[in-house]
């Protein structure tokens, strides 16, 4: 399955969001997620199933003014 992760196409075997995050290398990281522009809280990730062509945003703390 191909999904757009932070603007780049990535291949994932997992359809469940928590497993996909692990597979993409975000295991254990402090991140927040949005799927197709909608915020997905950490508690909702287990109930979130990915589909081909989905747009996933994975954001983390960063410097800001």
């Amino acid at each position: 399955m191909k999904i757009l992760v932070n603007g780049a196409w990535r291949e994932t075997a997992s359809r469940e969001l928590p497993q996909a995050l692990e597979e993409l290398g975000y295991g254990g990281a402090v991140v927040s997620t949005a799927l197709n522009g909608e915020f997905i809280a950490a508690a909702q990730r287990a109930d979130t199933v990915l589909a081909d062509g989905d747009r996933l945003e994975v954001l983390a703390p960063m410097q800001g003014g």
């Binding site: 932070n6 603007g7 993409l24 290398g25 975000y26 990281a29 991140v31 927040s32 945003e57 994975v58 954001l59 983390a60 703390p61 960063m62 410097q63 800001g64 003014g65």
Partner: peptide
């Protein structure tokens, strides 16, 4: 102040 940005795995 802090922000959120795309995280590289």
């Amino acid at each position: 102040t802090v922000s959120l940005r795309r995280e590289s795995a």
